[in-house]
């Protein structure tokens, strides 16, 4: 697994390098305008919420999205719509296994009984038939 990860990172590094060369050529031809997002990154916010992601980290998020069965063109469209901070939240959520929609409820009867009890105590809200008494 670690070897695979390293291999992926090496590929990502190559791609990132290639990207820098091509994008560098593209911008040289036109005016060097400062983007709105760069200015916001520098001047906005008392909270240090905005931070820069390396090309490798972006590639890591892209790999993750692809590995979850999203096709490459759609993955790129998703990446383009998000800031670095937002992208990093995908990794964090993935590590918590917390994509909304998945319910990894154990199959044990005890789990059912616990959740039934917590539902009735207004602690949780798992079952449609429970009425909570707070």
């Amino acid at each position: 697994m670690a070897a695979l990860r390293n291999f992926k990172k090496a590929i990502a590094l190559c791609l990132a390098g290639q990207l820098m060369v091509t994008s560098g050529m593209a911008t040289a031809a036109q005016a060097e305008m400062v983007a709105t997002s760069d200015v916001i990154q520098k001047y906005a916010g008392t909270l240090d919420r905005a931070y820069l992601m390396s090309e490798m980290e972006r590639q890591e998020v892209r790999d993750l999205i692809l590995s979850l069965g999203v096709d490459p063109a759609e993955a790129d469209a998703r990446l383009a719509a998000l800031s670095d901070e937002e992208l990093s939240s995908i990794l964090a959520q993935y590590e918590k296994d917390a994509a909304g929609g998945s319910s990894v409820v154990g199959a044990l009867l005890t789990v059912f009984l616990i959740l039934l009890a917590t539902d009735l105590l207004c602690m949780t809200k798992v079952f449609s038939f429970t009425r909570c008494v707070s």
Binding site: G69, A81, Y94, G100, S102
Partner: peptide
């Protein structure tokens, strides 16, 4: 929607 996660990530809702 991310099929492998059986759900949607919060950031993707913002992006969409």
């Amino acid at each position: 929607f991310s099929p492998g996660a059986d759900g949607a990530y919060r950031a993707d809702l913002i992006g969409s």
